[in-house]
Amino acid sequence: MEAIKKEETLSPKLIVSVGPHVKDEETIQRIMWSVSLALLPSSVMAAYYFGPRALAVMIVSILSALGAEAVTQKVMGKPIAISDGSAFLTGLLLSLNLPSGIPLYLPIIGNVVAIVITKQLFGGLGFNVFNPALIGRALLLTSWPRLMTTWYKPVASLTSLDAITTATPLGVIKEAGAVKGMEELLKQFGSISNMYTEMLIGNRAGSLGETSIIALLIGAAFLLYKRYITWHIPFSFLATVAVLSWVVGVKDPVTGNISFFTGDPLLSLLSGGLILGAFFMATDYVTVPVLRRAQIAFGIGCGLLTILIRRFGGYPEGVCYAILLMNCFTPLLDRWFKRRKFGFVKERK
């Protein structure tokens, strides 16, 4: 009697629970807020180059994402989990994918679609098939193509309210063809080295967060260092784009002949939303394959589709659609790259 009583008061020696038994400090919350932190340099650069208007777009976007998440979770009777940072990150990413001059109801609509339809309807965080922010952007681009492709010249002033519309480098190339477009870009930027420098810093027209490559790379380096993302997807993505843009080369607008092995890989890497997409959106844990080899295939697929859409498609920029299309293939990739179990014989029909 005495012994049993003593045993009951002691804490149990053997704890039986369901795996995985990982004891670590990393939580969803921590990762989501860290990724948001990694986007801070880009957000600051966006606010610097595109003025208070950019700040307004970002704030409205984040608030509407948080609001949509809270309302949906309340309606569905789930615990409200806006503090886990995933809705914040979706809102921030969507705003970084928008031009600065859009009316402020666009980010609200985009975020409602992103959070409610793309994420919560499928069961919330962890079950969404597509990257919510990218679906939001694709929907806005389809519904308001004019507003979503009116780009503004960077003003580089925190107080200026002036705005001059212009075309993005990729837009110029799409419009005028590779050869003429390059000449126009050189006229715009002065020299070719100046063009690359300006593109690295972010002094060009484009979506809020995609222009400043340096700021994006700082964030990406932080994520890689903390091992929140691995090299597999971003590097296979970027390498595919670089190699293919060099191989596919430029198309002569008059004759339609493609001169191979003459493309400019650096321009392809620095222009458009490639860096933002490769490091921050193609690495979303939920919507990409789990297996490393499948991730490399995923990155290569993203690169292929990006070049396909940029060079031959109707849109100047293809990163968003490339990632969304590869999101469709995520379950298939995981299935194809599954390692064969040792001693496992394929079932005969």
């Binding site: 339809i117 098939v129 498609g313 849109y315 968003c320 659609y321 969304l324």
Partner: peptide, 18 residues
Amino acid sequence: FVLTGLIALAFLGFSGLI
């Protein structure tokens, strides 16, 4: 149906290809 709509949105990326 919702999923089909979202995939259709992604497939819009192919528009204008040819």
